[in-house]
């Protein structure tokens, strides 16, 4: 089967003009404009297979939202080619929208003043969802997302987490094969995030829904998708498996250890050889970061337990936040 989304050489430029200040400047603006071209997305190519869950990450202004807007048909690109579920989104927008679900974490797709269930019923008419399908999905989603208690509450009275769950349900009522999520967990607490992730996994498993999500929370990606796309300054920096990224790009591992008691503290200096440095976490907890190329975890651990009396010891990989931060800062994957 061909990929559900194929993006080739996608480019989106925005032309903005420099606004001059003051009354005179405003007058000048009317007649002479200095244009600035911004490449929000610059020759981006990737493809997504049916049933995949892909995390799309990048710093603010990296081009994530622009990509999502082109893929959902809101924006038309300056150049390149996009085929999504057999459609060119920005050319066949109205047809295409029946085949996708979209959730923007920042703003709701529901009607602010009316009860959630009434919003759903309007969507039923808009998407021409047959009554039995509508009932069935409404039941399933109410169950999975625990919507029952506030189906009759107006959207504006819901908490952010509740609203997000309703938005998710709304985006899937017409059973689209493709779901786009733009920062779906933004501002949510741990429990709410967890519930949404579980729901997405369930829908992906049972319905085979393809999911593309942008996020700043990398734990979303660790929980949900094995594949990660990193974009920066409009260009794709990394496209691949999350594990693969860790293996390739993690530079250090860390060992955290807990001393048995204070008598051990003076002996810490003894293990600080060969470029190894202990960082103090608290009085009895210390952390050693070491380059994966120069030291093996086994050797470091051996040195620690041979020298000190420790109560406990943990080996950790470099957190993916750190890896990604390094990629953003460097602007490339080395």
């Amino acid at each position: 089967m061909p990929p559900i989304i194929e993006v080739q050489g996608l480019t989106k430029e925005f032309r903005t003009f420099r606004r001059r200040e003051g009354v005179l400047g405003a007058l000048q603006n009317l007649f002479v404009r200095e244009y600035l071209t911004v490449h929000a997305v610059d020759h981006v190519s990737f493809s997504i297979e049916r049933g995949e869950m892909v995390g799309y990450i990048g710093a603010n202004g990296a081009g994530k939202s622009t990509t999502i807007k082109v893929l959902t048909g809101i924006l038309s690109p300056t150049g390149g080619r996009v085929i999504s579920n057999g459609f060119v989104p920005y050319r066949e927008r109205r047809h295409y929208t029946k085949h996708i679900g979209v959730v923007f974490g920042q703003r709701t797709q529901l009607w602010w003043d009316i009860a959630v269930i009434e919003s759903f019923k309007l969507l039923k008419e808009i998407y021409e969802i047959p009554e039995p399908d509508f009932r069935k999905r409404l039941d399933v989603f109410s169950e999975l997302l625990n919507l029952k208690e506030y189906l009759h509450t107006p959207v504006r009275k819901l908490s952010l987490g509740e609203r997000m769950r309703c938005d998710l349900a709304a985006s899937l009522l017409h059973n689209p094969p493709l779901l786009f999520l733009d920062e779906p967990t933004i501002g949510l607490d741990v429990v709410a995030k967890e519930r949404i992730r579980e729901f997405l996994k369930e829908i992906n498993r049972t319905e085979g829904t393809t999911v593309l999500l942008t996020t700043h929370d990398l734990s979303d990606i660790e929980e949900l998708s094995r594949r990660i796309l990193i974009i920066d300054k409009g260009r794709i920096l990394f496209d691949g498996d999350l594990e693969q990224m860790k293996n390739r790009l993690a530079q250090y591992n860390q060992v955290k250890f807990f001393l048995k008691d204070r008598t051990q503290i003076p002996r810490l200096a003894q293990i600080e050889t060969d470029g190894i440095v202990c960082q103090r976490v608290d009085e009895l907890t210390y952390l050693i970061r070491f380059d994966r190329e120069h030291h093996s975890s086994a050797a470091v651990i051996r040195q620690i337990v041979n020298t000190l009396e420790v109560r406990d010891l943990l080996v950790e990989e470099e957190p993916i936040e750190e890896i990604v931060k390094r990629i953003y800062l460097k602007g490339e994957v080395a």
Binding site: G73, I74, T97, K98, I100
Partner: peptide, 21 residues
């Protein structure tokens, strides 16, 4: 405020949605 994005995401004419909402 950006509500027009939402309008564009629905399979109904934009004009229709804006006028009759």
């Amino acid at each position: 405020e950006g509500r027009f994005d939402r309008v564009l995401l629905r399979p109904v004419s934009t004009l229709f949605q804006v006028v009759f909402e």
